[in-house]
């Protein structure tokens, strides 16, 4: 997926978070967004994901030669962030079935189990994910993001709460999606930055 952001600005009420941020992400690329705490990395990633409207500027998305409309952007995006809350009253597999149904995908029990195995989660746990540890919840967020194999993966602090095995899984997914589409990582972690082909530093306005 090709992403072109032009002079993006964001204000919350009168407070400017950042001004005139421009970048382009090409298919096959891992792109990093860095910056100090409070500089607006997560805000910028939310804008790229269509979850926030920019105060100024424009973002264009293209799949091959076809422009992606903002109304259908959610189909092309996988999003992982520590602040993303899943449906904690349901079990891991129930969550997968729920996401698949809402996305209009057919998903078998075996596929759901394969996804859980892939991120290193136990396949036989029937308890609600509210009982999961923070690291296990982060792995569940990875499932949420990759279930529909989106051409654009947006990762905000993707290795937070993860152990070394979890980090290896995240970087394996990044490597796969680099070939499948494009990946944008908002991070300050040196290991994450090492995965990126290019980075941009966001400065607080």
């Amino acid at each position: 997926m090709h992403v072109q952001a032009e002079t993006i600005s964001k204000k919350f009420n009168r407070r400017a978070v950042f001004r005139d941020v421009s970048f382009t992400v090409e298919p096959g690329e891992v792109f990093g967004i860095t910056g100090r705490n409070g500089s607006g990395k997560s805000t910028l990633l939310r804008i790229v994901g269509g979850l926030l409207t920019p105060s100024g500027g424009e973002i264009r998305y293209r799949l091959g030669t076809v422009a992606v409309a903002p109304e259908t952007l959610h189909r092309s995006i996988g999003y992982v962030a520590p602040y993303l809350t899943l449906y904690e009253e349901f079990s891991a597999e129930e969550n997968i079935v729920l996401y698949a149904r809402i996305r209009g995908l057919r998903h078998t029990h075996a596929e759901a189990q394969a996804l859980l195995e892939r991120v290193g989660l136990p396949v036989d746990r029937r308890d609600p994910i509210r009982a999961f540890s923070s690291g296990m919840k982060q792995r569940m967020r990875l499932v949420f993001a990759i279930l529909h194999r989106p051409p654009l993966l947006l990762l905000d602090e993707p290795i937070s709460n993860l152990d070394s095995e979890g980090k290896r899984i995240v970087y394996g997914i990044v490597d796969e999606f680099r070939r499948h589409g494009a990946v944008i990582i908002a991070t300050n972690d040196a290991e994450d930055i090492a995965q990126c082909d290019r980075t941009i530093s966001v400065e607080a306005a």
Partner: peptide, 11 residues
Amino acid sequence: RGTTMTLQLLA
């Protein structure tokens, strides 16, 4: 529950 964003990303 904080799931508004999740739903925005799903549908």
